[in-house]
Amino acid sequence: MEILIDTILLVLLMITGFSIVRMRSLLAATMLTSIYSLLSASLFVVLDAVDVALTEAAIGAGISTILLLATIALTTDREKPPQRTPMLPLIVVIITGMALIYGTLDMPHFGNPQAPVHLHVAPAYLHDTPGEIGIPNVVTSVLASYRGYDTLGELAVIFTAGAGVLTLLGYRTRGGNSMDPGIRKLLILRVIGKLFFPLILLFALYVQFHGDYGPGGGFQAGVIFATGFILYALAFGLGNAQRLIPHQLLRIMVAFGMLLYIGVGIESMLLGGKFLEYNVLADDPVSGQHLGIILIELGVGITVASVMLMIYYVFRSRQPEGDL
């Protein structure tokens, strides 16, 4: 059954992908990209990657669609037909594809438990997590503890990208907190927005703090948190959203999450361990791990949520007044 769903989802992905490339309207292509993400999120669920599916659904289908729409609003939504004949790119693509398919021929088959990727490291993580870390979700234990350095690096990339967007576009302060008359007409959006805003935030908190036990964690929670505020900004105007979370506060929070993560690392060094060795944080190693993971996941969540929301604010603040 799983194979059947997998096959159908992949075919749908392929159809969506082809349609995106063919579309001349960028608005339509953006909406299809959102569907493409949602399909791949469903595929991740079928392939047992629940944490990944949660992230992909929140990011691909949620925030990246909004950012693409914001960019289209600032630029144009029509794509001019290309002047060149697309023969050369087509040939390059077909040759590359053929070479890659040739490369897959000696790959271990899909779902094979004896594939090399399953024989090294992963069994150790699965075997040691209950004893060493004491949390059921192995993805969280690898992400936050065994590979805490990697995650710190990823967080630094997100931090840098946020800083880059801020440097490129700059934040423009704007007067007036009044709601735009265009939004005022969208009664359904406002009612639904009001209803869902607290629920989304509550769900984000659940995903944040339940990440040790079920699918979830700082990355997903941060994105869901930002989505809640973006929905608020869409329904009630940017000015009102900024009264709730001012832009200056976001800048501080972006750095604070990062510092919290590094701070946990330094604290464990001060207590006599290595950088990010949570075992020393509490009396016994397992509670130390618990504490460390909760703290660094919180740092991740704060930085991710603030960067996402900041990027959204920056894009929206570029839009001419009254266009919001």
């Binding site: 990011i59 990823e154 991710v304």
Partner: peptide
């Protein structure tokens, strides 16, 4: 998981 967030 982290690559998705970085991709965004």
């Amino acid at each position: 998981l982290t690559a998705i967030v970085v991709s965004l």
